[in-house]
């Protein structure tokens, strides 16, 4: 099965990359852009039979390695 993991910065954590991209968009006349937050998207190919059991495993991967929960949130989608 395939899992998608989205890692995003928590609210209130400064995102200088997002700010720089927003500045660029605004200077390109996309003035409707108010904010940009940059995160990470990961695709995992997984050998597992049970979606439920695997979800717990992927959560563990996120907690341990894929996200730093001091500053990041994560979201998991399993296909």
């Amino acid at each position: 099965m395939k899992a998608k993991v989205y890692v995003t910065l928590k609210k209130g954590v400064l995102d200088p990359q997002g700010k720089a991209v927003m500045g660029a968009l605004q200077s390109m006349d996309f003035s409707e852009v108010n904010d940009v937050r940059i995160g990470k998207f990961m695709e995992l190919e997984i050998n597992a039979s049970s979606k439920e059991a695997e979800e717990a495993r992927i959560k563990e991967m996120c907690e341990k390695l894929l996200a730093n929960t001091v500053i990041e949130n994560y979201r998991i989608e399993i296909e």
Binding site: V13, L14, P16, Q17, A20, N68, V70, I71
Partner: peptide, 16 residues
Amino acid sequence: TEAGLLPGVLMRNKNL
């Protein structure tokens, strides 16, 4: 910090 021996995290410099 990643190992949890010190708190917090070191992020990208503010000026990138």
